[in-house]
């Protein structure tokens, strides 16, 4: 600990988080899986045996082959093929890219929107605070799936509409967390000093207040990304999320639903397992981080 004491507070916290994750085998495992999946998604096209959306390489004769089958040209379909003769493994890696991309992007936008509004509410207080928090309460009171359903039922499906719906249901969680962290921070001496020095309000908010509210945000951000991925998959499964041209894991599973009864289990089971692994590993790591940051329940 003494070796770390010269580090600033945030560094000590991130070090604490890392040490916390490393000390729990469960969380460490989750964290490693997260990293592997992230890498897979980033490197996607380089890893897949075929480009699942290049119609030239698809062969309809290869449709619905069970896992481990050989194609005509010697390629092995380790996880089988779907109704169009697409290699499931490749389709899943592409699906992972879409799912993670949508989840991360909407999570980050929600984080930015929520943070700005939360900081404003905490810093100015009074009417602005009351107004923002009223909206936050309203949003947090309505279930995610209901709000997303409402929006997409009225707007129709589409990538940006899904992102919009996900941001709309998530920003309030961030806003509330930032506000409560900022309320504690804003009465500290350094903020008063900054005000006395005549530093502009945006700079105080972003340069001084925000860095000190960051740690809880990172944890909430992780859990929210997991939620967003799940929510997107659910909406896509229902047919009101992503369009068929941008197949996420949810859409792959929906394809498998059509043939579930006839025993072609691999079309829905494997993408589902991948989705589960993704969400589970993020949640398990995030959960550990929350434990570390919430001393009320005691560190183990």
């Amino acid at each position: 600990m003494s070796a770390l004491s010269f580090l600033s507070r945030e560094d000590a916290l991130s070090a604490r988080l890392l040490r916390g994750i490393a000390s729990s085998p469960k969380a460490l495992f989750g964290g490693i899986i997260c990293l592997i999946l992230l890498l897979t998604a980033v490197l996607g096209p380089l890893l897949t045996p075929q480009n699942p959306y290049d119609l030239a390489v698809l062969d309809i004769l290869d449709a619905k082959l069970p896992p481990g089958s050989q194609s005509m040209d010697g390629l092995t379909y380790w996880l089988g093929t779907d109704g169009q003769g697409r290699d499931m493994l490749s389709a899943m890696i592409y699906g992972l890219r879409t799912s993670l991309g949508v989840g991360l992007f909407s999570g980050i936008v929600a984080l930015i929107v929520g943070t700005v509004l939360g900081l404003i509410a905490a810093y100015y207080g009074g009417r602005i605070d009351a107004l923002i928090m009223r909206v936050v309460d309203l949003m947090l009171g309505l279930p995610t799936i209901l709000v997303a359903l409402m929006l997409l039922a009225l707007l129709g499906q589409g990538l940006w509409k899904v992102v919009f719906a996900l941001v709309l249901v998530q920003w309030a969680t961030f806003a509330r967390a930032v506000r409560s962290a900022a309320l504690v921070e804003k009465n500290k001496d350094y903020i008063e000093a900054a005000v006395t020095l005549g530093i502009s309000t945006p700079r105080i908010l972003l340069g001084h207040l925000l860095p000190n509210c960051l740690p809880p945000l990172i944890v909430i951000g992780m859990l929210q990304v997991a939620n967003a991925i799940s929510a997107e998959a659910t909406l896509s499964f229902l047919g009101i999320g992503l369009p068929i041209t941008q197949p996420s894991l949810g859409l792959l599973i929906a394809n498998g639903y059509q043939v579930l009864m006839s025993g072609e289990y691999w079309i829905s089971v494997y993408p589902g397992l991948l989705l589960l692994t993704l969400v589970f590993s993020i949640n398990i790591t995030g959960d550990r981080c929350r434990e570390i940051l919430n001393p009320r329940l005691g560190e183990r």
Partner: peptide, 22 residues
């Protein structure tokens, strides 16, 4: 319970159908 949180509801339902019905 974390597993329960992470299980996508729609997929979990399909697995129930697959195991108990099919």
């Amino acid at each position: 319970s974390i597993l329960g949180f992470s299980l996508p509801g729609f997929w979990q339902g399909m697995m129930l159908i697959m195991i108990f019905s099919v």
